[in-house]
Design a protein around this nucleic acid. Structure first.
Lengths: 134, 134
DNA sequence: CAGAATCCTACGAGATACTG
DNA sequence: CAGTATCTCGTAGGATTCTG
């Protein structure tokens, strides 16, 4: 590979593109909900289900997922408004990736967690709360 | 924050944990380099290879990867200092995930990219450069 | 060489208020 | 109901400087 000039952030780096999608704070959860529900969900339903999310963050998450082609947003011209979100084919296909990710994660995330604990226990190089400095 | 019912951010959500690791700006690249090199790499080597990364960012990335158990950091008490980074078993095992990720990404990232273009073309809700406002 | 420490800035995200 | 519009604040990350 040409490690000279790097397409780390360009659209030429597929992994980067996908990881950036998944990296959004609420994406995994929204995708998971839509997968589990297996039916269109309204904004309010999502909002209530994803506890802790603000409408702003949820809106942004959904807009991004729509833009990226993972969800389809359908507005019904009724009053009061009714907006439904459903997975696209791509969004449904992402299930494969999420499954692979989840499998690997379930197997290895615990190792990561315990590695962190070990590291943190052995390297109090950044003074923890109980040491006073300055 | 009130995560009463939802383990979205807790260590109990393996996918979240792993995605958060991969989400770091330079992680994919560092991991890819160490995989490709198949030998320990020095800090300077990594720095030179990952064009555009700053010392601070690279250091932080490597520290995180070390903490999470993906890389092993070895300091040689020589002068000048020599610090080598190599993949751990977990880091090497991550290759499986990265392969799965990359396969899926190569297949689908283009769809994401083109979806973005379509979306952006159709929704100039935020006035583009060529419309003057104010 | 491999960083640590510092300064600085852009952006993400929460809280709040308003609307078709 | 499903957003949009502001405001603010915390933090990630770049640039720069210093050191064992």
């Amino acid at each position: 590979m040409d490690t000279k000039s790097l397409p780390v952030f360009s659209a030429d780096c597929p992994s980067r593109t996908i990881v950036d999608v998944l990296a959004n704070k609420w994406v995994l959860y929204v995708l998971g909900l839509l997968r589990a529900a297996d039916r269109p969900l309204r904004f309010g339903e999502l909002k209530r289900s994803v506890e802790g999310v603000t409408q702003k963050s949820l809106t942004k998450t959904l807009r991004t997922l729509e833009r990226d082609g993972f969800v389809d947003r359908r507005v019904h011209a009724t009053v009061p408004p009714r907006v439904e979100y459903r997975l696209t084919d791509l969004g449904r296909d992402a299930g494969q990736l999420l499954t692979a990710l989840n499998d690997w994660a379930k197997h290895n995330a615990p190792k990561v967690v315990s590695s962190r604990e070990t590291f943190d226990a052995g390297q109090p190089r950044e003074a923890p709360a109980w040491t006073h400095r300055g």
